[in-house]
């Protein structure tokens, strides 16, 4: 009843908002959170498609095979990786903060040519 495209549009909007945050914000942690937002948007898209294929399996091109529930499994893996990444990333942020005393990403420019 809810058209698939709505979910996809929502996913795209969230993704773009995440990219905006990634480009425009100055705080490292906020940038990180934008990345998480992007990941969530993608998760939404996966789940939506999992449901879609579940009911519209006939729309698959001939010869292609799919298990509809693998979308959920994929979301599971995404979350696991996101957790690992968040842990390591935050550890890096902490160590950067210790040396640079700032969370402003523009100040972390020691690799400048």
């Amino acid at each position: 009843m809810v058209p698939l495209s709505w979910y996809l549009i929502l996913s795209a909007v969230l993704f773009c908002l995440g990219v905006f945050g990634f480009l425009l914000k100055r705080n490292i942690i906020t940038i990180f959170m934008s990345i998480e937002l992007m990941l969530n948007a993608v998760n939404l898209s996966f789940v939506a498609f999992a449901n879609y294929w579940n009911t519209h399996l006939d729309k698959l091109p001939s010869g292609a095979q799919m298990v509809p529930l693998s979308g959920h499994v994929f979301v599971f893996f995404v979350m696991v990786v996101a957790a690992a990444e968040a842990a390591v990333g935050l550890a890096i942020i902490i160590s950067v903060f210790r040396t640079r005393e700032t969370l402003n990403v523009d100040r972390v420019n020691l690799l400048k040519l």
Binding site: V19, L23, R26, V105, N109, K112, L113
Partner: peptide
């Protein structure tokens, strides 16, 4: 392009 500025790198990636 190699500005050392993370945000510009982010922008290029985007």
């Amino acid at each position: 392009m190699q500005s050392g500025n993370i945000r510009s790198y982010a922008a290029w990636v985007a």
